Simulated scan of single mutants.
Amino acid sequence: MATAPGHPIDVHTWSTPNGWKIPVMLEECGLPYRVVPVNIGRNEQMAPDFLALSPNNKIPAIVDPDGPGGAPIAVFESGAILQYLGRKTGCLYPADERARVAVDEWLFWQVGGLGPMLGQAHHFRIYAEEKIPYAIARFTDEARRLYGVLDRRLADREHVAGDYSIADVAILTWAKYHEKQGVDLGPLPHVRRWLDGVLARPAVQRGLAAI
C-alpha cells in the first residue's frame, strides 16, 4: 500500500494482468489507495454498483476522491486510468508532447493488440473446455509475433518508450505470463532483459502483491 498523504484512491480490481496495472502504477507514484476486490470468478463485475463505475463490466476501475477541481471522479479502462494517473501526478507520463506520443503509441499497442491477443491465447490454451487446434495455433502464433515486435523495439533501448513509463506498466503485467501464452523468451533476449528488470522494481513487486 502506498503511504503518501491524501485521500486513498479506491481501486476496484482483481488478480489479472489488467487488474494489476493500477496497483503497480499507484505504487510507482506513491499514491495512497485501497483495493476493493471484484471477484470475477463469482461474476461480481456484473453487480449494479460496479456497473455504475465500469459500464463494460470489466476490471479495473477507480474512484479518485481528489479528482479534477477537487471533486471525485470514477475512471474505467486500464489505459485510461494509467493516463489519468500519469497526468494527475506527472509520474511515468512525460509532459513533452513527442515523448508522450511515443508512450501513447506503445500503451495503445498493448491495450488494442497485445492484451487482447494474449488473453485469447490464455483462454484457448488453458481455460477453454474444448481444445480447438485452429484457435490455439492462431492466437499462439500472434502472441509470438507480438513478442517479436516488442523484442525488436527493445533491441536498442532500456524501456519501450524512452524512460520507464505507463507503457511498460501496461505491458509487464501481461508479459510475466509469457509461458502460459506459449512464448519462449529464449529467442527474445531483449524482452527477457527488460522483463527481468521491470519485475525487479520494488514498486512493481508491491503492486503485484496488493491483490
Rank of each mutant, 00 (worst) to 15 (best):
R152V: 00
A135N: 00
G69S: 12
P5I: 02
D64T: 04
I9E: 04
V191D: 05
E158A: 15
R206F: 02
G207Q: 07
F108C: 01
S165N: 12
H123C: 01
L188I: 09
P94G: 06
E27Y: 09
P55A: 08
Y134S: 00
L118F: 15
G148Q: 08
V198M: 12
P23I: 08
M25L: 14
R201N: 09
A161K: 07
A170F: 10
A4Y: 07
D168W: 13
L146H: 07
G70L: 12
Y147L: 05
L146D: 02
R125E: 03
W194F: 13
D141H: 10
I136Q: 13
A4F: 07
G70C: 10
P48W: 11
R138Y: 06
P189Y: 07
L26P: 06
L51P: 00
W194A: 11
Y147V: 01
P72D: 07
V198H: 11
R192H: 14
T89M: 08
G112Q: 09
P37R: 12
W194P: 12
P187E: 01
A121E: 04
G67Q: 09
I59F: 09
N39K: 11
Y147A: 03
G162Q: 10
V63R: 15
G112T: 04
R193S: 13
N57H: 15
F50T: 06
P202E: 11
A99G: 05
R152M: 07
Y127E: 03
G79D: 05
I9G: 01
D64C: 10
A2E: 04
M46Y: 12
A2C: 05
R100S: 05
E130R: 12
A200I: 03
F76I: 01
Q83T: 14
N39Y: 05
S165H: 12
Y147F: 15
R192F: 03
N18V: 03
R100E: 13
G113C: 10
M1N: 05
P94R: 03
R125M: 08
E179S: 14
L199M: 14
L53W: 10
E130M: 01
L107I: 02
G90P: 06
K176V: 15
Y164K: 11
D196K: 13
A161T: 07
I126Y: 01
A4M: 09
L154G: 11
R145L: 06
Y127L: 13
A74L: 11
Q83E: 12
I81F: 11
P48F: 08
D156N: 15
V75N: 02
R34H: 10
K58Y: 04
P17T: 06
P23K: 11
K21V: 06
P65C: 04
V63Y: 06
V24Q: 03
E179D: 14
G113Y: 07
R206T: 00
G182P: 07
I81M: 04
Y134H: 13
D96S: 07
C29L: 14
H122G: 11
R201Q: 08
P133R: 00
A47E: 15
L53S: 03
